[in-house]
Design a protein around this nucleic acid. Structure first.
Length: 310
DNA sequence: CGTATTTGACCGGT
DNA sequence: ACCGGTCAAATACG
């Protein structure tokens, strides 16, 4: 008797589907950058919102297909799986004072959660904490090796009632002035946007002379199968590849009204082109009153930390 | 009293 | 074995 779980043709179809979705997501991303020019007259439904929804749909489908590959448990929705999982309780160590690491209750937790697979990520560096308009629930904090500040872990509040898979990590950077580095994983699929994103002003934070708020969209291309879709990425170290879009800035750090996308144009490149270190000309187009042209340089500093100097 | 945060243990990838 | 991401009981909060 055979034990074929994924017949070869099904596996091929699955890979084809993922490839197509990756293509579609990339095209949507490029469309989003292109749409940053003309904006809708009224604030009905912005093109960016639509693009973000489409991107979210693609990303979620990809991750669903991706995680079903070697994991049959994931076919059960995450929200319902938790409830009757054998690992949801039976773990207690501090009140009795005795170690229970060898008890059977611990072993039952094995395999009760999956680690996040590669999903869309974007990184923001901000001098202040940002209220991005979504409801987040903190679920962890870790001391990171060789980092002075701990990393904080957040998930969407509506992970369980709406199955929203968005998460973010927030960590203070080492360099001076200290910045809040926020890494977003995945897209929100919940429909509970509270308000427009805004900077949370910290009264203890001195009004800085430098004024910038950064957002880099980074699509990490790590699988070799994905690389064929991004031939221009294959030549470089993946950590140096960033799509720049969804780029917000505020001239004085006190307001950021209706942030819109900012397009980065490097000489001789198209919208959404992959950039690397160098000097780039930026054109900002936002809903707000300030539309500006900026010159800046992009430096890729130590792992994942990059700066944009004006 | 329901919801959010804290915090140490567990787990999986490397 | 180590490190970082996640879980969940205890605790804090409104």
């Amino acid at each position: 008797m055979e034990s074929i779980i994924w017949p070869e043709n099904l596996l091929n179809d699955r890979n084809k589907a993922i490839r197509e979705l990756l293509r579609g997501r990339e095209f949507t991303n490029q469309l989003g950058v292109m749409l940053s020019g003309p904006l809708p007259a009224d604030g009905s439904v912005s093109a960016e919102d639509l693009v973000m929804k489409i991107m979210g749909s693609f990303s979620n489908t990809i991750s669903i297909l991706d995680s079903s590959e070697s994991d049959e448990v994931s076919q059960i929705p995450a929200s319902s799986r938790r409830l009757d999982s054998p690992c949801r309780d039976g773990r207690k160590s501090e009140d009795s004072g005795q170690s229970s690491k060898t008890s059977a209750a611990y072993k039952d937790r094995r395999g009760c959660y999956k680690r996040r697979k590669t999903s869309h990520t974007s990184i923001k560096l901000t001098p202040n904490l940002i209220d991005d308009g979504h409801a987040w629930r903190k679920y962890g904090q870790k001391v990171i090796l060789n980092a002075r500040h701990p990393r904080n872990y957040f998930r969407c509040t509506h992970k369980f009632d709406q199955g929203c898979q968005a998460t973010k990590q927030v960590q203070m950077t080492e360099n001076e002035p200290a910045m809040h580095k926020t890494t977003y994983h995945g897209f929100h699929t919940c429909k509970n946007l509270l308000k427009a994103p805004q900077i949370i002003l910290d009264s203890t934070h001195p009004a800085t002379d430098s004024s910038y708020l950064l957002c880099f969209d980074s699509d990490r291309i790590e699988k070799s199968s994905d690389r064929s879709l991004y031939p221009h990425l294959a030549k470089q170290e993946h950590k140096q590849n960033f799509h720049m879009s969804d780029y917000h800035m505020s001239p004085d750090l006190t307001t950021i009204d209706s942030p819109g996308p900012m397009t980065v144009l490097s000489p001789g490149s198209d919208h959404g082109d992959v950039i690397s270190s160098g000097v780039y000309s930026c054109t900002a187009s936002t809903h707000s009153s300030f539309g500006m042209d900026l010159m800046g340089s992009v430096d890729f500093a130590d792992d994942d930390v990059f700066q944009f100097a004006f």
